[in-house]
Amino acid sequence: MNLYGIAFSSVVGLLTLPLAQAASSVELTVQGRITPLACVPTLSGGGVVDLGRISHQDLNIETGTRLQLRQLSLGISCNGPTRFVLLMTDNRDGSANVNSEIYYGLGFDNKGNKVGLFSVSFDPKLTVADSLPQIYGTESTTGGAAWRTSNLRPIDIGSRSYLGFTDIEGSTAGPSAIQDLNSLLNIEVVLAALKNLDLSSDVRIDGSGSLHIKYL
């Protein structure tokens, strides 16, 4: 028994010897840039989508109910041509009844049931920027390391993927530098199935998301 103990201790001593000779410090570097460029976003109607009062009789019992598409106007004004992307944060995180980065929650009812979800999409055909003849959408799911081929298809804004715009069709180079952009946002709302909601009192639809500009 002692033999095994001595042999084990000897091996440990040999293995730790190189570590004692290694450097006892490591460098941490903080990098970045402070840019004089800045962009300000604005939304029509103060960014409020008012669905009004919805009767429970208008909801599907077994499946979610998709409401009529709503739109908001988005304007982005920069103090110079700027390469930027858009993301959105769910201010009701955890309340969307489908787990995806493009769906945002509508809060909970009085018994903690999820009320539903909403999504926000951009349509490049409804987007104008500066004096450019046409704008195309592009997206990166890799933090800007690679970009989806730019095209005219509508694209949902996500909480992790970068959404940008370019004036070059079929490009994989990412967003172009833009100073002023205007677009119509499509807001799609889907309420939870009636059977999954507590209707002993009014159910408040309480969705909220924050649109962010990230500079490249």
Rank of each mutant, 00 (worst) to 15 (best):
Y215A: 04
T89W: 09
S131K: 12
L72K: 00
A22Y: 11
N2C: 11
I6V: 12
I178G: 05
L106S: 00
L59G: 02
A177I: 11
G207H: 00
V128L: 11
N196G: 03
N196A: 10
Q31S: 12
Q68I: 06
W147G: 01
I168Y: 12
V40Q: 14
P18T: 05
D198L: 10
S100I: 10
G170F: 10
P154V: 08
R53K: 15
N196S: 08
S200Y: 07
S171H: 07
V120H: 00
H56N: 09
A173V: 09
L163Q: 02
K195N: 05
Q134D: 09
L152P: 01
R204L: 15
P18F: 02
L194P: 04
A22D: 02
L59K: 06
E27D: 06
T16L: 11
S208N: 15
A7W: 13
V120C: 03
L185D: 05
T149P: 09
R153M: 07
E62Q: 10
G45N: 01
E62W: 04
Q21L: 13
C39R: 07
L132H: 12
V190R: 00
Q71Y: 13
S171T: 14
R83A: 14
T42I: 12
M88R: 10
V40S: 14
G75A: 15
V49P: 00
T138P: 05
D109G: 00
Y136D: 00
L19E: 07
L67H: 00
F84H: 05
V189S: 06
R83I: 15
R53D: 11
Q31K: 12
L191N: 03
I157F: 09
N60I: 07
D167E: 08
R53I: 13
V203Q: 07
I157E: 03
S200Q: 11
G94R: 08
Q68G: 01
L87D: 01
K214H: 13
S171R: 10
I168R: 08
G116W: 06
D206A: 09
M1Y: 09
Y4K: 14
W147E: 02
H212V: 15
L181F: 07
S210G: 02
K214T: 14
M88K: 09
N97F: 04
D198C: 08
N182S: 10
L199P: 03
R153T: 13
